[in-house]
Amino acid sequence: MTGVTRWTGHEAGLLRKAMRKTGKSFAELVGVNQRQIPRWEGRGETLELSLANQAALDTVLAQADPDAQRRFAALLTERAAVEHDERAEELLRRDPRTSRHSGDGKLMAIVEEGIYLSGPDNRSVWLEPYLIDIYPTTNEDYARFVFATGHRPPLHWPAGRCPVTLANHPVVWVTWLDATAYARWAGKSLPTSHQWEKAARGPRGRIYPWGAEPTAAKANTAEAGIDATTSVSRYQSGVSPYGAFDMCGNVWEWCSTEEELGNGRYELKGSAFTSPIERATPSQRNAANAAMKDNDTGFRCVAQP
């Protein structure tokens, strides 16, 4: 069982329920006054616990019996899945241009045919219509692919299993070859660098998906100070004109476009939690060897409409 990144009253309440403890007995385990427990659970996610209490809960979770740990993991997963599905269904209701792909079930948005302004010089480029994933490929998405194909899991998965606490975070430690294999399994492909950029900037050449200002609160870049991936649906104010999330920050995303030299290096777009927001402009270019993998590199897919 992996640990909890940030304990709030919500996670503490789930752990108590998973361990099937009363407020009094759970308080004794954590080492707090029993009156604290209903206050924690009442405040839920609005209450981030002190570092001492977070450390105590880490210990309680680590020492819990395997059945309680499994129940806790199931409760966390259930909550994450509900939140993700609610957000997805909201997008479907709000925008009839969105649809679920039959291959991997991910929500996709249509990018209409036409010219868009590309690169730092805003050169006009024509593209045919295509669908693009609204969210990057998550650990949960990738787990279904691994289960179906036997493909090797990412190295950050304990014992080769998708961490419950990262289910709705973008998958990382994947090479270009891994990303291509997933896309092929799903009946999709990796986007070209032009497709990725248009989905991020829109047709009129926005500097960032949301406009011209480098607003750090709209993306998981180095300025956020999180120093890790975040849920793919977290930054709702930073979506692109087509409704795509995390086109700036969180993780670099592999594209199908090979560098002009044809040396086995492929373009990456969007920057990551490790990069300053100035590097997150969708017009910028980056590339890496197809075998490269890192803790800040993932992908999303495109498909024919």
Rank of each mutant, 00 (worst) to 15 (best):
M1K: 11
M1E: 12
H10D: 09
H10N: 05
A12V: 12
G13M: 02
L15A: 10
L15F: 07
R16S: 02
A18H: 03
K21I: 01
G23H: 12
G23Q: 14
F26M: 05
V30W: 00
V30L: 02
G31M: 05
G31F: 04
G31E: 09
V32Q: 03
Q34A: 11
R35K: 14
R35P: 06
I37V: 12
G42H: 07
R43A: 14
G44S: 06
T59E: 12
D65V: 08
A73E: 15
L75M: 09
H84W: 09
A88R: 14
A88E: 14
E89S: 13
R93D: 13
P96L: 06
G103R: 01
G105Y: 00
L107M: 02
V111I: 12
E113G: 14
I115V: 15
S118A: 15
S118C: 11
R123C: 10
S124L: 14
L127W: 05
Y130M: 06
L131G: 11
D133F: 00
Y135C: 03
E140N: 11
Y142M: 00
F145A: 01
A148M: 02
G150P: 04
H156W: 09
A159M: 12
R161Q: 12
C162T: 09
P163L: 02
V164M: 04
N168W: 05
H169S: 07
H169K: 07
A179T: 00
T180K: 15
A183M: 01
A183D: 01
K188A: 00
K188I: 00
P191E: 05
P191K: 05
T192S: 14
S193E: 15
R201D: 08
G202F: 01
I207L: 15
Y208K: 09
Y208S: 05
A212K: 13
A212P: 09
A217Q: 12
A219M: 06
T221R: 12
T221Y: 11
A224Q: 15
I226N: 14
S233Q: 09
S233V: 06
R234N: 10
R234G: 03
Y235Q: 10
Y235I: 07
G238H: 02
S240P: 01
G243N: 09
G243F: 04
G243E: 11
D246Y: 06
D246Q: 06
D246S: 08
C255Y: 00
G262D: 02
E267D: 09
E267I: 08
G270N: 03
S271P: 01
A272R: 04
I277L: 06
R279Q: 13
A280Q: 07
A280N: 04
P282N: 09
N286Q: 13
N289I: 12
A290H: 08
M292H: 15
D294L: 11
N295G: 09
F299C: 01
A303Q: 10
